[in-house]
């Protein structure tokens, strides 16, 4: 499996670039992964990442989109509480891309 050398530590990634060990995550690492995709994480991006991480800590899975959208509407205003806004932030899909930066595994099954 691929590993990256980051701040003197070997970090294991799976084939799709998700962290294998969730404990490896740091905010710097998130920034580093985003930079690798040519992205700069703004405050709005962090809002999503932080929510994903909080939800995961409580529920051991990434939130479904419905819940993410609602949460963003609550914290950033109803005009941003929609999937369109989330896709603008994360063009490769909020579930996939944001979860990867947040250090969460991707859900598998009938999804």
């Amino acid at each position: 499996m691929p590993t990256i050398d980051f701040q003197g530590k070997q970090i294991e990634l799976d084939e799709d670039g998700y962290l294998v060990n969730l404990g490896d995550w740091t905010p710097d690492l998130a920034t580093h992964l985003a930079t690798g995709d040519g992205m700069t994480l703004t405050e709005s991006h962090w809002e999503v990442i932080n929510f994903l991480r909080d939800y995961y800590a409580k529920y051991q899975i990434a939130p479904m989109i419905k819940i993410l959208v609602k949460e963003i509407a609550k914290s950033m205003g109803p005009e941003k509480g929609n999937t369109k806004y989330l896709y603008e932030l994360y063009p490769a899909g909020p579930a996939k891309q944001a979860c990867r930066y947040a250090g969460l595994p991707k859900p598998t099954g009938c999804v």
């Binding site: 529920y59 051991q60 899975i61 479904m64 419905k66 819940i67 099954g109 009938c110």
Partner: peptide, 17 residues
């Protein structure tokens, strides 16, 4: 379940729906 949804998570999801 296939997705690994924990019991309390399942309840949370249903509350949202």
């Amino acid at each position: 379940n296939h997705l690994g949804i924990e019991p309390h998570t399942m309840v949370n999801i249903f509350e949202t729906m």
